[in-house]
């Protein structure tokens, strides 16, 4: 379980998160949604232990989220973060050496699924292939929590679908939990079971997708718009 208790985060004078309380149960695919600047990436970085809260505590399975929490959490950055002079294969090797939980076999499977050429240099890959490579090295880690910051943004529909299918093929919800941020709501909706809606650094709502559809008769896009208009 992930717990945020009275968490605030300030960047110099700008408040990114304001007194957030959250509990994230394991075994789900959770969408963290909200407008640009609502605090989605900040929330993920806090859980990944990459930044520290200005106030409050962030716990992952009862442990304070600091830099050592990366043993439990895989984090996919929205930025490209690898060495461009590496080949695909060298990138995978690098991750395998860096993380003791890295599952080499699984990485091979995902590489094949994503149709990546292991001899190609990262700097020569298309944006879509770089995005796929990021998915490979993130999903190949056997960790309980996988965080993905904008895994679909700026990609064509074929790449987006291969990423969605890849996610479904290579995660194990009995042991893993995924939290991802996205603006591609219509596309990602069937993949999620829970959404957390952020607005101006606060949590507006946490809901099950199916109960939004069931009770409010709304899809995710309309539900978000409605919540933002209030």
């Amino acid at each position: 379980m992930i717990q945020l208790e009275n968490v605030s985060k300030r960047y110099l004078v700008k408040k990114a998160l304001n007194n957030v309380n959250l509990q994230i149960e394991p075994g789900h695919i959770i969408g963290l949604i909200g407008s640009n600047g609502s605090g989605k990436s900040t929330t993920l970085k806090l859980i990944a232990g990459l930044i520290r809260p200005s106030k409050g505590t962030v716990l992952v399975e009862g442990k304070l989220a600091n830099r050592r929490i990366c043993a439990k959490v895989a984090y996919l950055s929205e930025l490209d973060a690898y060495y461009s002079f590496f080949t695909v294969e060298q990138t995978v090797d690098f991750y395998a050496r860096t993380f003791s939980d890295f599952n080499r076999e699984k990485a091979e499977e995902i590489l094949q699924f994503m149709k990546l050429d292991r001899a190609q240099k990262v700097k020569d890959l298309s944006k879509g292939s770089r995005a796929r490579l990021k998915i490979v090295v993130t999903l190949a880690r056997d960790v309980p929590f996988i965080l993905m910051d904008e895994p679909l943004s700026g990609l064509d529909p074929m790449v987006r679908q291969s990423i969605i299918r890849g996610l479904l093929s290579f995660i194990d919800l009995e042991r893993q939990t995924i939290i991802l941020t996205t603006h591609e709501l219509a596309e990602i909706e069937p993949l999620l079971d829970t959404v957390i809606l952020l607005k101006d650094g606060t949590v507006v709502a946490t809901e099950r997708i199916e109960s939004i559809r069931d009770k409010e008769k709304l899809n995710l896009v309309d539900w978000m718009v409605k919540n933002y208009e209030q």
Binding site: G27, I29, R165, L168, S169, P190, L191, D193, I209
Partner: peptide
């Protein structure tokens, strides 16, 4: 469950 989830792009819990 897993096959149908992958095939239809739907969350396995659903």
């Amino acid at each position: 469950v897993r096959e149908l989830a992958i095939d239809s792009g739907v969350n396995p819990n659903t």
